[in-house]
């Protein structure tokens, strides 16, 4: 991890409230930027010292130009600020953070994305496609409404996904996890990768057959994002209320079966 700047290059509005922001990491990161890792970003104007920073997963990173992309939806105060940042602005940032996904030896995987949780999975898909030519991925993407399934984003990554929306405006009407049993039957899967709202991940934990490993990228509010505040400690099934793991250091990618979703609300 290092302190530096996300120098804004452009904001792309994919759909109302859905943005991809591109920026150059300056100075360039000393460590590789891997799928599942994230950055911590100051989102309010320079000179304002009142707000906490926000963590965002990398959607994309180009090592030759040090350009990084984040996909976000405007839902509150932080993203309301972020969407106002303009080309040329230097946003203080700490990068890269967290423990990324592992995918060595994985060539048959299911990816389950909910809402903006699609971001780290798209980057993962992209990296896996380049490292494993025989890759077979079944990509499932769900959201509340069809508008949140911004198709342009998937196209850019060459992803064809099965989709679900809770209001039925695009794809299957219902939860994305409804589509999982059928996919599970269709192959010898080695790994499931998932990122999305906790209820989705919790449902996933109930559906997956024993023996099929699953890596999930989780979210909790973070204050420091570098492991000092113990604000993001995660409830685990086996920890007896000791909360030994910090989501910002030992996570955000965790073994799905370790997580105690009942205690995560």
């Amino acid at each position: 991890m290092q302190y530096g700047f996300f120098q804004v290059l452009r904001q792309v509005e994919l759909a109302p409230e859905h943005f991809v922001i591109w920026g150059r990491l300056t100075p360039p990161p000393h460590q590789p930027i891997l799928p599942g890792s994230f950055l911590h970003l100051k989102v309010d104007p320079p000179g304002d010292y009142r707000m906490l920073w926000r963590p965002y997963s990398f959607l994309d990173y180009q090592p030759d130009t040090h350009q990084a992309a984040i996909y976000y939806r405007v839902v509150g105060e932080g993203t309301g600020q972020l969407c106002q940042r303009r080309e040329g602005e230097l946003l203080p940032a700490i990068y890269p953070l967290g423990t990324p996904f592992t995918h060595e030896g994985v060539s048959r995987a299911i990816m389950v994305a909910g809402g903006v949780g699609v971001a780290p999975l798209l980057m993962l898909y992209d990296r896996m496609r380049h490292s494993s030519p025989q890759l077979r991925v079944e990509f499932l993407f769900g959201a509340r409404s069809g508008r949140d399934l911004v198709p342009g984003l998937l196209e850019e990554f060459g992803v064809v996904a099965r989709m679900a929306s809770e209001d039925g405006t695009l794809g299957h009407r219902g939860y994305i996890t409804d589509l999982l049993p059928e996919v599970l039957e269709q192959g010898e899967w080695q790994m499931v990768y998932a990122c999305g709202p906790n209820p989705m991940l919790s449902a996933l934990a109930d559906l997956l057959p024993e023996g099929l490993p699953c890596q999930v990228s989780l979210e909790l509010p973070m204050a420091c994002a570098i492991g000092v505040c113990n604000g993001c400690n995660l409830p685990l099934r086996s920890d007896g209320g000791r909360y030994p793991r910090r989501l910002c250091v030992e996570g955000p990618v965790m073994d799905l079966r370790e997580v105690d979703f009942a205690a995560l609300v």
Partner: peptide, 23 residues
């Protein structure tokens, strides 16, 4: 000490509310 259940932090206007529990 293991500390308190999540969520442990929430932002407030120009501030932070925490219940870490002295972990």
């Amino acid at each position: 000490r293991g500390g308190n259940p999540p969520p442990r932090v929430a932002e407030t206007p120009a501030g932070l509310l925490n219940s870490i529990g002295l972990q």
